[in-house]
């Protein structure tokens, strides 16, 4: 073990089973585990970035290229050609899609300043060229929107359509269920020929055709604050969400339960999240390497 930096692998959870067995016998090992656990809960409190972005953007850009007059003319000519080209492009369809991979989150700004945050394993696609006239996008998965006032803003999902003018709302469309929570303004949800207006503090759930209105009491979706929320979810839905969020694999074997779970688990601490699920459903986990887990009856 001379030039082997095995402690770095302990920190990144990359130790193999054999290594763990061998190193676990070391009397110092508990100390290392403890350092790892506690240092993972460290935090530094920095103030908000305030107006740093504005200050930065206010700084003038340097134009190092195209300094000489002849260059400027050439640049102008090139731009003209380019714009003609782009003009032709705009006539066609320019679909843009943005995807947040498993285990990640992504924030994106639309040309009009509206903002979307994508949860893990979620995708949106929209037409960038005529965005200002037609604010329509399709969504698979879950996303939180902050919409700038303007024309109608529509979110198409396989489970229903959500329309707004300018507001903050969260859409979660997974398997056959859609949850739409409204945090500001008004949101209209429609599915087939039924529709409903959602007001701030309320959430509409459509599960296989049946509608339900619930109260919510937060200012933003739990997942944007590193929490995963479950509302009357079955075990397979719970594990599916954990798989997406932590980019892991969970196998559930020999468990037959119709128990539903309502509550939150942390999105940044897998150990605690699994502990909560274990206690709730009375299960026991086995861990294989590389984020493979199996849950079994206790």
């Amino acid at each position: 073990m001379k030039e082997d930096h095995y402690l770095s692998r302990l920190l990144s959870n990359d130790l193999s089973e054999e290594e763990k067995q061998a190193l676990g016998k070391d009397i110092d090992w508990q100390m290392f585990e403890k350092i790892k656990e506690h240092s993972g809960q460290l935090n530094v409190s920095q103030r908000e970035s305030g107006n740093m972005l504005q200050t930065v953007l206010a700084a003038p850009k340097k134009k190092s290229l195209f300094q000489t007059p002849s260059f400027q003319w050439m640049a102008a000519a090139a731009m003209l050609l380019l714009f003609t080209g782009i003009g032709f492009l705009f006539l066609g369809d320019s679909q843009t899609s943005i995807y947040a991979a498993r285990g990640t989150e992504k924030t994106f700004l639309f040309p009009d300043g509206s903002q979307v945050s994508l949860n893990s394993d979620s995708e949106i696609s929209f037409n960038k060229s005529d965005w200002k006239e037609n604010r329509t996008l399709s969504l698979t998965g879950e996303a939180y929107f902050k919409v700038v006032k303007g024309s109608k803003f529509s979110v198409l999902t396989s489970n229903g359509i959500v329309q707004v003018l300018g507001t903050q709302f969260n859409v979660r469309s997974r398997s056959q269920r859609i949850d739409v929570a409204c945090y500001e303004g008004r949101v209209r949800v429609s599915e087939k020929n039924k529709e409903q207006i959602v007001i701030p503090g309320k959430m509409v759930t459509i599960n296989k055709g049946s509608w339900l209105v619930n109260k919510i009491n937060v200012n933003q979706p739990e997942w944007t604050a590193n929490q995963i929320i479950f509302r009357a979810d079955l075990l397979n839905e719970v594990t599916a969400e954990l798989e997406r969020k932590y980019n892991i694999k969970i196998k559930v074997s020999k468990v037959n339960t119709t128990k539903e779970y309502t509550g939150t688990v942390p999105a940044d601490n897998l150990d605690i999240a699994l502990k909560i699920i274990e206690e709730t459903f009375n299960l026991k986990r086995t861990q294989f390497t590389d984020g493979n887990y199996e849950l079994m009856k206790k």
């Binding site: 953007l57 700084a59 003038p60 340097k62 190092s64």
Partner: peptide, 14 residues
């Protein structure tokens, strides 16, 4: 950090 971001913004074209 602000200075670094400003420098990046100013030289964004390169």
């Amino acid at each position: 950090a602000q200075e670094a971001f400003i420098k990046l913004w100013q030289n964004c074209s390169s």
